[in-house]
Every structure is written in C-alpha cells, then in structure tokens.
C-alpha cells in the first residue's frame, strides 16, 4: 500500500508540471504588458522598468515559470492589481465563506440524490422511475441561471422569505444570507446527481452477487442496503472526494449572483477587473487542489476495493 501511494505521488509530479505549464503558456500569450497596465497612462519608462522588475517580468520565461511554481509552493501570490490586498489573505477569507455555502449544500444534495437514486433504481422501469428521470432530464434543459433568477425573484423578492442578496461575515449572522443560496444550490445539484447515482446502482443491481443473495432467500431490503449500497459506495466515494475542491472553489455562479464574497465571487470580480495575478493564482491553486483530491480519490479507491491491482 505504501509503495502504491509513493508511486501515485511520483506520478502526480509530471501532471502538476504539465498543468502549471499549460496555464503559464496561456497567461503569457496575453496581449498587452501587465506592467504598462499597472503603471497607468503617464508613467515614465523608468517607472515601468521598476514595475517590470518587481513583477519579475524582466526574467527569461523559465525564470517566470519558476516564480509561478515558487508562489504555489510558498502560498505567497503577491498582491491584487485591483484591491492591492495580499492575494493569500483574499483566498483564505474567500475559502471560508465558500465552504459555509458549499458544505451544507453538498451534504444535503448528496443525501437527497442518493436516497432518490437508490429508490428509483429499485423501482426501475415503473412509472415512478420514468417520471422522475423525465423530470430531471427536462429540468436540465433549462439554464442554471434561470433557476437562480427565478428562485431569488420568488422566494426573496415576492414572498420576502430571505434577504435578496448580500452577506455578513459574522459566524451566526451569515446564515440568514446563506439559506436561499444553499436551497438553490441543492435544487440545482439534485437533478444531475440522482441520474448519476441511479446509473451506478443499476450497474450493481445486475451483478451476479445480487442474484446469489436473492437466491439464498434474502429480502430486497437486506440485499439493497447490505450488498448493493456497500459495493456502490466505491464509485460514489471516489466521486464525492473529487467534488471537494469544487466546494472550496465555490459555486461561481451562485456566489457572484447573490454577492457572497467567496472564491467564486473573487474569480468573477477578477475577470471583470482584468485582475491578472488573482486569476493566475486562483487557476494554479484550483488546479493544484484538483490534482491532490484526484490523487486522494485514487488512493481511497485502492484502499476500499481489494480488486484494484497495487502493482
């Protein structure tokens, strides 16, 4: 097992270098000199030169690429062009907020979709199964943005159940602003997730071990909960682990819409303000997190599934 983990870790290194290099290439074909943009209209050539040196733009390309890796390793990304704050501080603050929104939504939507997915897989082909699947296919044919708009309009504006948008960083005060975004988050996630879980459960239901268990005389409930759920847990768990970075990364759309200052909102504001260092650090860091959790999910898979070859 230990050797397997070490090998997987070593395998992640070329992936990490490859992803950061692709991002580096993309960021360095950006037309326009960031130093010119930062220095303003009336800067003297000396000022621009100083800024170029400060940003490390006078170095050769491999020096700049190394700087990017060093920023990632030391978790020090410099300052935002727009707010002039330290990017590290902005990310730490945003991550907590995004987590308050993403984590409850994730737990609730996963539980709901798992239960419904298991239920309709069990009653596959019946009118209940067909209706729920048809509804979720139809629901996915409407843009996410429409649900967010309609949810805010009806629940917050028309019926006045929640604040329309905004945020309060207080540990208790924040929740009144988060309930509606969490509700919408859950609503948006359930349709695609329950179809995913239904497919996984259906795959398991046709396995030989299910027939064996049934022929031994075990009841539906025992087979579903003791056998099917346990085996289906392997793909489900690995899928859940991969989604964790997206919780921290935040739901970009919901955060920016409800003006919740999480990481998603940070990205959208950085797009609007052409805040290059924030975008660079968020993409590099997001990719890094994604690689780590992919790695964790692979290791977890190997641990829970004895069929996975460790060699």
């Amino acid at each position: 097992m230990f050797a397997y983990i070490v090998r997987r870790l070593l395998y992640a290194i070329p992936i990490l270098l490859g992803t950061t290099f692709i991002l580096f290439l993309l960021f360095n074909v950006v037309p326009g000199d960031p130093a010119l943009q930062l220095a303003g209209k009336h800067a003297t050539p000396e000022v621009i030169q100083t800024i170029r040196a400060e940003l490390g733009l006078d170095k050769p390309w491999y020096g700049q690429y190394f700087d990017m890796l060093r920023q990632l390793a030391t978790f020090d990304f410099g300052r935002s062009y727009w707010t002039k704050q330290k990017i590290t501080d902005m990310i730490v603050a945003g991550a907590g907020t995004s987590f308050s929104l993403g984590f409850p939504a994730f737990i609730i939507s996963t539980s709901i979709s798992l239960v419904i997915g298991l239920f309709i897989a069990l009653y596959r082909g019946t009118i209940i199964d067909k209706t729920i699947v048809a509804f979720s296919v139809a629901a996915q044919s409407v843009s996410l943005l429409v649900y967010i708009l309609a949810g805010q309009y009806l629940l917050a504006y028309q019926w006045g159940l929640f604040p329309i948008s905004g945020y309060d960083p207080g540990m208790i005060e924040r929740w009144q602003y988060l309930v509606l975004p969490i509700l919408i988050f859950v609503f948006l996630s359930v349709a695609p997730e329950l179809r995913f879980y239904r497919t996984i459960f259906l795959d398991e239901l046709y396995q030989d071990y299910v027939r064996t268990a049934r022929s031994k005389g075990l009841g539906t409930k025992t087979v579903m909960l003791r056998h099917v759920l346990k085996n289906a847990m392997i793909p489900i768990l690995t899928n859940l682990v991969i989604s964790i970075p997206f919780l921290i990364l935040g739901s970009v759309l919901i955060e920016s819409f409800f003006q919740i200052p999480g990481l998603g909102d940070l990205i959208v504001k950085a797009i609007a303000n052409n805040d290059r260092p924030v975008l660079v650090s968020m993409t590099v860091l997001g990719t890094f997190a994604y690689i780590i959790f992919n790695l964790l999910s692979d290791i977890l898979y190997a641990m829970v599934d004895p069929r996975v070859q460790l060699k």
Partner: peptide, 14 residues
C-alpha cells in the same frame, strides 16, 4: 486535471 472552468478563464484571458 485543470478544472474546466478555470481553463476556460485562462483561455479567455489569453
């Protein structure tokens, strides 16, 4: 391994 949305941003920036 680059989350799709972040890659889209990087391309849009480029």
């Amino acid at each position: 391994n680059i989350p799709e949305f972040l890659l889209l941003i990087a391309i849009a920036l480029a």
